[in-house]
Amino acid sequence: MPESFGSLITIAIFVVILITIFTSFVSVKQGTIVVITVFGKYRRILTPGLNFKIPFIENIYSKISIQNRSVELEFQAVTYDQANVYFKAMLLYSVLDQQEETIKNVAFKFVDERNLMQALIRTVEGSIRAFVATKRQSEVLILRRDIVEHVKEQLDVILEGWGYHLQDLQLNDITFDEVIMKSMSQVVASNNLKAAAENEGQALLITKTKAAEAEGNAIKISAQAEREAAQLRGQGIALFREEVARGMTVAAKEMAEANMDTSVILFTMWTESIKHFSENSKGNVIFLDGSTDQMQHTLKEMMALNLLHTDNVKK
């Protein structure tokens, strides 16, 4: 009996030694910090790897992850002009650093993780609501970046006191009541129509302006061409008259030398003119006074014109 009792004591001592050995070493995972307390009071922290602790005296109070953590938020805010705004956001945060004082804040500021999350979410929501309450509904959508910067500025100071740091805040969705969304869509549609009408008006103005410029240039070119053509026609007529006068002068001189009446030239010109009229005119009838008196009157006029032209040539 005494031998059996001694064996049990030996076994019990061996078991206690094993338990003591196993509880003296703590393996801490990467990205985790372990907080050690002694009789409920903070003692020290254990970093990743294999660590030694005093068995039965030092206890593991908490294991704190220093990795990034995220949480999704959904909440409502009211603008300055009493419009309801609905936010969907994603919050990314982490432990500020691995300093001992920081880890102590993380471990002992809140009772548990649930209370931390509640305080964090309410702080973010309150900061955004306070900012949105000073803005009008039409300004909220274009102030997304300003809202994020405002929240980070306000939240960083608070979170540092808790031992945390706000990595990022993303406002993934910002919506309004259905009535407001419809009115905003109508405003956008009307603005688009207005812009389209203005663009169309500008395009039409440009088209009309270009057409007017082209028409003006065409008129200028046509007028220039007509002027040049008129000048050429005038020069041609002048040359024609000059040649006719020169030819009549030569013919009259030759007929005078031959003792012939020069009025025959005028008569010939008169008959050629009548022939030209009959061949090129569009009418069917040419009215002529064929009386002897009229013929003599016409010949006299032609002879007078010939004499006048001859005097001008001699001068």
Rank of each mutant, 00 (worst) to 15 (best):
M1G: 12
E3T: 10
S4G: 09
T10K: 03
I13V: 11
V15P: 07
V16N: 06
I19W: 07
I21M: 03
K29S: 12
T32N: 07
T32L: 11
I33K: 10
I45C: 02
L50P: 01
N51Y: 09
I64P: 00
L73G: 00
V78I: 13
T79G: 01
V85A: 07
A89Y: 06
L92V: 12
Q98N: 13
V106C: 01
F108Q: 10
G126E: 04
R129L: 02
A130W: 02
T134S: 01
T134V: 02
Q137E: 12
R144C: 07
R145E: 11
D146A: 08
I147L: 06
Q154R: 03
Q154A: 08
Q154S: 05
E160P: 02
H165G: 02
L171H: 01
V188A: 14
A189S: 09
L193C: 02
N199K: 15
L205M: 10
A211V: 01
E213C: 03
E213R: 08
I219N: 03
E228Y: 07
A258T: 01
N259E: 15
M260N: 06
I265G: 08
M269F: 11
I274R: 15
I274V: 14
F277M: 15
K282W: 15
F287H: 14
D289S: 09
N312M: 09
